[in-house]
Simulated scan of single mutants.
Amino acid sequence: MNLSQLLHHFKEELKDVYEEEEVKSIFFISVEHLLQLRRSQLMLNWEKEPEPEKLTSFLTILEGLKTHKPIQYLLGEAFFYGSVFKVNEAVLIPRPETEELVDWILEEKRPAPSVIDFGTGTGCIAISLKKHLKDASVTAVDISEEALRIASENAGINQAEVSFVSADILTFQSDTKFDIIVSNPPYITEKERTEMQQNVLAHEPHLALFVTDERPLLFYEAVADFALSNLKENGSLFFEINEYLAQEMIQMLKDKSFVSIELRKDMQGKDRMIRAGLKLNHLSSGVI
């Protein structure tokens, strides 16, 4: 079976699972991963027949796709901010909108900043920041030991020196002050489950996805409280947020004495990111 025939086979087998364009995109990702052929190169290699073991790998991927398993988990890797990150079902697959959050943080152009990332997962935010801020001191926190194992491996793969800490966002304390505090915590409410795709619900870790309907800002409040004590003068607090809770987030930050609160939309026009700072009199007096 050559690559042209294999693509046709993917389309036929997955027509009830994915749209055709998505099948093609998944196929191209698989080809690049297994055969090291980019999409542009594939156009000249449609008649190429994969070796038997490679063909078996393609068919194994196809069977996984039929169960709605994301291609990133099937390949064991995902791309984020120009780098490769190992993934498994203990960590969320890095999203493009999170790349926009990294972009925003890098816009600040701080010299040798101290950074802490809460709920690091794959380590994609912390590692990407360290790779682009060579003199930064970066700490990454997660409650999941398996997530920290994956994140540590990703730091090694990407040659990024990051300190990983096993801790609960809700109770973590430190005497260290930080220039940048960032978090992309669980923010999907239980009532939003029905809107989610099956491949996410069935395979991505619910611990990293969901919060209760009663306290949807639970983790944001905890990180914000940490920032009240641990954010340096002129430091910035960054969050990736639930688009439906943007105004609640702004009000929560105002109630906790944060200022210069800025809301940004992602590439799809959704309210997705917030940055905030603290008043100087708060930092000097300790008064909330």
Rank of each mutant, 00 (worst) to 15 (best):
L148C: 07
G121P: 10
L106Y: 10
E63D: 11
E63K: 08
E107R: 15
A136R: 11
P96W: 14
V115D: 06
I105W: 05
S163D: 13
T171G: 01
N88E: 07
R95E: 00
K109W: 12
K109L: 09
P94V: 07
K130N: 14
Q159P: 01
E89N: 11
T176R: 00
N184F: 03
S144F: 00
I181R: 05
G119A: 11
W104S: 04
K66A: 07
Q173F: 02
K131S: 12
K69N: 06
Q173Y: 01
Q198F: 03
I71C: 05
E77G: 03
K66H: 11
T189C: 14
S114D: 12
A126G: 11
S152W: 04
I188R: 00
T60M: 05
I71R: 01
Q173K: 10
K109N: 15
E99S: 07
S174D: 15
I127C: 12
V102G: 00
T120G: 08
K134T: 06
L92K: 04
I157E: 01
S174V: 02
T171E: 07
T189I: 10
Q198G: 00
L170P: 00
L75K: 04
P70I: 12
Q173V: 12
R149N: 06
S144N: 12
N199F: 04
C124D: 10
G121K: 06
L75I: 14
P94R: 08
T98Q: 04
T189S: 11
F164G: 01
A160C: 05
L62N: 10
V141R: 09
P113G: 10
E192D: 08
K177G: 04
P186S: 11
N184A: 05
K109R: 13
S166R: 03
L129K: 13
S166L: 14
T171M: 02
L62M: 12
F79D: 15
I116A: 10
G82L: 12
E89M: 08
V182T: 02
A78N: 15
I150Y: 03
I71T: 07
D142F: 11
L65I: 08
N158H: 05
V165G: 06
A155S: 08
N158K: 02
G156Y: 09
V138D: 09
E77L: 13
F118I: 10
Y73E: 13
K191F: 11
P113I: 10
G121Q: 07
K134E: 15
S114M: 07
R110H: 08
E153P: 00
T122A: 14
E97C: 03
I150F: 06
E192C: 04
A78D: 04
G119N: 02
V84N: 13
P113C: 13
D117R: 14
Y81K: 12
R193I: 07
F79W: 14
T60N: 12
G156M: 10
I169S: 04
V141H: 06
S183D: 00
N88H: 06
E145W: 00
S152H: 06
L62R: 09
E77M: 10
D168I: 08
E192V: 11
V91S: 12
K134H: 14
K66C: 12
Y81F: 15
I93D: 04
E195N: 09
N154F: 03
H68Y: 15
E99F: 11
F164D: 07
V87S: 13
A160N: 01
I150K: 01
E146G: 05
Q173H: 07
E97V: 08
I181W: 05
Q173T: 14
F178C: 03
S83Q: 15
S83H: 15
